[in-house]
Simulated scan of single mutants.
Amino acid sequence: MSNRFQWLAAIAGVAVSIAIIGAASATPCLPEPQGEGRVAAVIDSRSFRLDDGREIRLAGIEPAFPGTSSAERMRSLATLLAGRKVRLHADDDTPDRYGRQIAFVWLVGDEKLAQQEILAEGEALVSPDVSDMECAGTLLAAETAAREAKRGIWADPTAIKNTESPGGILAGIGRFTLVEGKVLSVRQAGATTYLNFGRNWTRDFAVTIPRRALANLAAAGLEPKSLENKRIRVRGFVEARTGPRIEVLQAGQIELIGER
C-alpha cells in the first residue's frame, strides 16, 4: 500500500486514532528550515509580516466556510502570533504570486506549530496539498479534535455541507468547503470523470476528476469507480457549472466516511 493511500486511509480513521497520530512524531511538519523572524503585523487570516519585511502565508490550511468573519480570524491569528519569534520550515522559499513565502510556522520557545494551534481552535480546515503523510495526519487530528469538541467553526451544524442540499453548497462558490454525501454513480464524459451525488446532473452536486488527475489518484490506490455507493467527504473549492462542483486533483481531497 502506498504512503499516499495510507494517508487517505488515515483521514477516514483519524477520529479514532488522534493519540496514535500525535505520537507518531514529536516534530511533524518540519521540512527544510527557512530562517527565523519576529512577527511585526498580521495581514489577513493566514498571512503575516516579519520584522525583516518578509510576508509569510501559513502552509497546509485554508479558511473555512461558513465560519467566523475574516476580521475575527485575523484577531485570532494576531493573538497567537503578534510579537512572537517564529521559525519557518518549507521545502523551498519560493514566494507565491503575491510575494508571500509559504511555510509551516513554529513558535520559538514553546515549540508549538501555529497551524496545529489554529486547527485545534476550529479556525481553519486542512488543505489537501500537504504531501507528507505524518504532517497531514497531525493537522487532520487537530481538525478532528476541534470538530468533535464543536469548537470554532464546528459549532455551526452547517460547517460540513450536505450533498442533498445543493443550494447550500452553491452559497460557497469560490470558497474552500467540506461536502459530505453518498456517491450514487460514477460516470465518464470526455476527459472528465464525475462522481454524482444526485440524479439531476444539472442541479445536484458532483465531484469532477480531470483525466490528468487519474494517475495521481491511481498512485494513491484510489480508483473513482470504487467510490460508487460509498459515503465520502470531499474538501476543495466550490465551482458552479450548472450545479455545484468540486474538482478533485489529489487523493487527499477524498475521505471515506466510516472506512479505514
Rank of each mutant, 00 (worst) to 15 (best):
I61E: 15
T177E: 09
A64P: 10
G236N: 14
M74A: 13
T193G: 10
A206I: 06
I118H: 01
K112S: 04
A206R: 08
I102C: 05
F197S: 13
I61T: 14
A171M: 10
W106E: 15
G152C: 07
V186D: 13
V108W: 13
G67M: 07
R211F: 07
V105Y: 11
V108P: 10
W201I: 14
R203Q: 15
D51M: 03
R49H: 03
A171C: 08
E72D: 12
A189P: 01
R245D: 04
E117C: 14
I21S: 03
P66K: 13
A82V: 01
V86S: 10
I20Q: 01
E134S: 14
D44I: 06
D110F: 08
T208G: 04
A149Y: 03
V238W: 06
I102S: 01
V126F: 03
K161D: 06
D91H: 12
A220E: 07
N200W: 13
G167H: 11
A213N: 13
A155K: 08
L80Y: 00
R97H: 04
A145P: 00
A191M: 11
V105I: 10
L249W: 04
I102K: 00
N196W: 07
N229G: 05
N200D: 15
A114L: 09
A206L: 01
R151G: 03
I21N: 06
W154L: 09
A15V: 05
S2A: 01
K225E: 15
R233D: 09
G152L: 01
A114T: 09
E55W: 05
Q34M: 08
V130I: 14
R38M: 00
A219L: 12
P28A: 00
R233W: 12
R233P: 08
L217A: 08
